[in-house]
Amino acid sequence: MRDTRFAVAMAGDENFPVPTDVFVSILMLLPTSCRRRLRLVCKTWRDVVDERTPERQVRTKVLAFISKRQSSRALVFDDDRRREWTFPSSGGFAGVVDMVGTSNGLLCLHETAPCGDRGVSVLTVANPVTGETRRLPPVPPARSHRSLGRYVFGYHPITGRYKFVHIPSSSSWSMLDAVQVLDLGEPSWREVC
């Protein structure tokens, strides 16, 4: 096996002793920017990165989100199939669910309810096709009114990470000195001035 590999490695057009499919799996474990840097290693690697690792193959699908108290639903139209998913409301209170945004088929939902002094504000990211949901940690309460402010949901194509931005709102825009950013998977928000 080793002799064959030596011969193959020296042939010049196959510089890596693994089948191309396996090499592609290795590349897909790397962040996009790292993968792009690997194009500089040799021509074979450049060709594999270019031809076999598209940045993201996502077919556009139609999504409808219907916000209703306690039974908000997402409908995903996938070719001739229609998938329906009901948002599992936090329960206990009749909250309003807003869709913050969508990215690569994920929904970011913001649930608010006038409950207690500050109100309830819960941010959730959900995959309506698999039904998975993940509740995000709350914005630090020190940043005043949690139920106020706006959220933005985005995907960073270079790092492959999902990000949430919270823009605190106050009566006067001049008081805005920082926004909070959360990477999906991180335990807490960080301040960006």
């Binding site: 490695a9 010049g12 510089n15 890596f16 290795i26 840097r37 690997l38 500089l40 290693v41 040799c42």
Partner: peptide
């Protein structure tokens, strides 16, 4: 083994000839 390495370092680790 590939993360955080320059193209030169990668070539060295995996014994790859630079054909550029």
């Amino acid at each position: 083994m590939m993360k955080g390495k320059s193209p030169d370092q990668i070539r060295e680790v995996f014994n790859i000839k630079n054909d550029y």
